[in-house]
Amino acid sequence: MSMAFTTERIAAAADPMVPRVARLRRRRRDLNDVWTLVLEMEDGSDLEFAAGQFNMLTAFGVGEVPISISGDPAKAGGGLVHTIRDVGFVSGALARLAPGEAVGVRGPFGVGWPVAEAQGCDVVILAGGLGLAPLRPVIYSLLANRRRYGKVALLYGARGPGEILFRSELEQWRRLLDIELHVTVDHAEGDWHGSVGVVTALLPKADFDPDNTLAMVCGPEIMMRFGVGALRDAGVSGSAIYLSMERSMKCAIGLCGHCQLGPAFVCRDGPVFRHDRLGSLLSAKEI
């Protein structure tokens, strides 16, 4: 009986539809409505992931949501890091978890950023708002293996000076001499001395060779559309631009169809897509 039970548990653990239990180690408030949660798996294991992948997080008794992983993929034992915006019942319940409380984790799922393919290239990271969170693992990876890449430019747009995500890390990265970092905000009051304007306006400031550049873009879809346009105008090929798409993901393994985007399932074939493979889907009003 005991043996059967253990076998069942093992089988269940391998089932991508069955959440594993993790516990909140700590949480940090990044912005007014944005929290970073550090989880650890109850069984003590490290959950390996690729930059750009996501997990389905369950607030028990409330529901499940897809959340991208915002931690360092190379940092074993650092905990499983997710950054979430408190906008609904589930994300709100997750944001309000107390240390030690249980969370369900399914994943990691999906196709991540082309970090390996970018080796030898200049890299442009174009992020807007909370879109910096799924790109942070990429930044960690680039910085950890800096000499494998050409010039690296991080261009970040936020709503206002008080809504700049990971601000202390951005300040830290700006001090590095081998990464170019520009930040702009959409709206500011007179006491802000930084840049005001759309994130695409930062592109002409960045130094990169468009013929040998790989760009990674993440943010609200309108921002990504204009970001792609600005990158194309700057000479970067559509086959060198990658985007992280967001759709209503439920099963996370390409079965239920909730996240279908044309011929693709965002959960299984994405969330990171090469722009030229998405084609006109990015600007389609309805699919």
């Binding site: 409505d33 915006r85 906008v87 807007g128 708002g129 909370l130 747009g157 936020a158 709503r159 809504e163 959409d186 709206h187 304007g197 759309v198 695409t200 306006a201 943010g219 609200p220 309108i222 921002m223 204009f226």
Partner: peptide
Amino acid sequence: LQATRLQILDVYGVHN
């Protein structure tokens, strides 16, 4: 003008 339109849209706001 285009940039201003995008700023007015407030794409990083909670409801976007």
